[in-house]
């Protein structure tokens, strides 16, 4: 049911864009006004969210670790599992952001036929997530050919690697297939795994359907209902050089694609997709496990008058000396 709600939302959005693209007066809205609005909402929303997170108090250092922390010299420590310095945190975060290391440890809990509870590694979600995110990144970078003039050589190299097999004309791009397969897997996982379905909200499906819609229209434009690429680049360059133009003869499907992308951008800061920025601010990951070496002051602490050992020694200095007790200061 919740999946159905999300599907209806995406279908209505696509249908509305299709209808609007047929009306000449609506094209400037779809092609110029909405993309600008969406980008403004995206940038302002992301900055606001990150600043909001950054302003929250940090009462404790709650690094989650799964390895030996820095300790006695003869104990072999694991800097990536239990980082102590800033650079070790950077290494750990890089593995997390680029390779989803914590998801790699994902386990599946299941009752065996004999009703024993069994935990087993589940790498499929990790593989699906990695396939989706990386192909999405490659696709975004490939799109730079429509936004940059001159086109940097790296974009061309990326596309030629992506189209390595030189299958079909226009060249079949691997990431197109991978992203659709990965999205369908992530969707199937929510639909057919009863426990995952139970915790899935309409918003979870909405992101998947929206991304499928964007990938679908993009692929359709490349292979089936072709649009005039030169006009598309004119439009894209007009947007980014702040001199918007609306060339004639761009197919309706392009406007559907652009509209769904605008929706994604505008929806981004308000949805779970904001984990793009949030992953950098995960408190259990981005703090060094140095509680024993550096004191972390809880900002919520009530101010308590303390009398440190140094002050105490200072206060009773003469009496301690008179008793012949050893002093720290000397």
């Amino acid at each position: 049911m919740r999946a159905f709600q999300a599907l209806v939302i995406v279908a209505v959005l696509s249908g509305a864009a299709t209808l609007a693209a047929g009306v000449t007066a609506m094209r400037p809205v779809l092609g110029i006004v909405l993309p600008y609005l969406a980008l403004a909402v995206f940038l302002a929303g992301m900055v606001a969210r990150v600043v909001w997170w950054a302003r929250s108090p940090v009462p404790f250092k709650i690094t989650t670790v799964c390895g030996q922390q820095r300790s006695l010299p003869f104990l072999r420590r694991q800097p990536l599992e239990s980082p102590f310095t800033g650079w070790q945190v950077v290494g750990r975060m890089a593995l997390e952001i680029l390779l989803f290391r914590s998801l790699f440890r994902n386990t599946r809990t299941e009752l065996t036929p004999r009703k024993n509870l069994a935990y087993q590694p589940d790498k499929l979600l990790w593989a699906g997530a990695l396939a989706f995110h990386w192909s999405f990144l490659v696709i975004i970078l490939r799109h730079l050919r429509l936004f940059l003039e001159p086109v940097p050589r790296m974009v061309g190299i990326l596309e030629s690697v992506d189209g390595f097999f030189q299958l079909a004309v226009p060249t079949f791009l691997l990431t197109d297939a991978v992203i659709v397969a990965a999205l369908l897997y992530l969707l199937a996982r929510r639909l057919f795994n009863a426990r995952v379905r139970y915790v899935s909200l309409a918003a979870d499906y909405l992101a998947l359907f929206l991304l499928l819609g964007i990938a679908g229209t993009g692929i359709a434009m490349r292979y089936f209902w072709k649009v005039d690429l030169v006009s598309v680049k004119e439009l894209a360059l007009g947007l980014v050089t702040l001199r918007p133009v609306l060339p004639e003869g761009v197919g309706a499907i392009f406007f559907v694609h652009l509209f769904l992308v605008s929706v994604l951008f505008a929806y981004f800061p308000f949805s779970k997709l904001v984990h793009m920025g949030g992953v950098f601010l995960s408190p259990t990951r981005n703090m060094a496990n140095d509680n024993r070496a550096r004191r972390h002051v809880n900002p919520w602490n009530h101010p308590v008058p303390v009398h440190t050992y140094e002050e105490w020694e200072e206060e009773f200095h003469d009496k301690l000396v008179a008793c012949g007790l050893p002093l720290d200061k000397e």
Partner: peptide, 26 residues
Amino acid sequence: GLVIFLLLVTTPVWWSFAMGAEVRAP
């Protein structure tokens, strides 16, 4: 980090200025 993020997202805006290229349809 936020500044880097904004610079990356707005790459297309400053790219043509930075490269000094003339943007014109062929």
